[in-house]
Amino acid sequence: MKTYGSEPGAPEPVQVGISEFVVRGRDAEDTLKSYGLGSCLAVALWDPDSGIGGLAHVMLPDGDAADGADEKPGKYADTAIRAMLRRMVENGAAYTSVEAKIAGGSDMFEFESFGDGVGDRNTAAAKDELGKLGVPIIAEDTGGQRGRTVEFDTSTGTLTVRTADGDHGVVEL
């Protein structure tokens, strides 16, 4: 979701809506947040040396096979990861030191039409793309049957994952 006229230093987290990605530097005072991920997947990339990081809220696995991925790269796992990494490098991140954390990709429904599970497909696509690009996944909280809300702090690289399930609570990746 685009925000117009953000005031500097505003403590409100920046919302990263479905099919969007946002890149921030180490000095950013606001965090990046995606609410209520079900089968959608959050991909957080971070370069610990420059402190440049980004959060993508992807909806579908395969942009290379879809029309319109050029206009909305953030919608698909593969194109979102590539576009976000490119933006980070343009902003001064070192490609070789970028690390990934992923969260989401639940499968809450067992409908016939869902096949192997829509959440699993997103997680697999993100892992595949990160593998191709040589970006290591250093932490993940994926799958299961619960929704998640994630908040990414680019000043520390911490990805905080909250689940609606009381037993699971809050996890810091």
Binding site: I18, Y35, G36, L37, G38, S39, C40, M59, L60, G68, S106, D107, M108, F109, E110, F111, E112, S113, F114, V118, G119, N122, R146, G147, R148, T149, A164
Partner: peptide, 26 residues
């Protein structure tokens, strides 16, 4: 189909459906 029960964050309960439809329609 038989009902699938959900008790979760608002957006999370509907995004699986949206994703499945998203394979074929925008």
């Amino acid at each position: 189909s038989p009902p699938e029960y959900i008790h979760d964050y608002g957006a999370a309960v509907i995004d699986p459906v949206v994703i499945q439809l998203g394979e074929d329609q925008e």
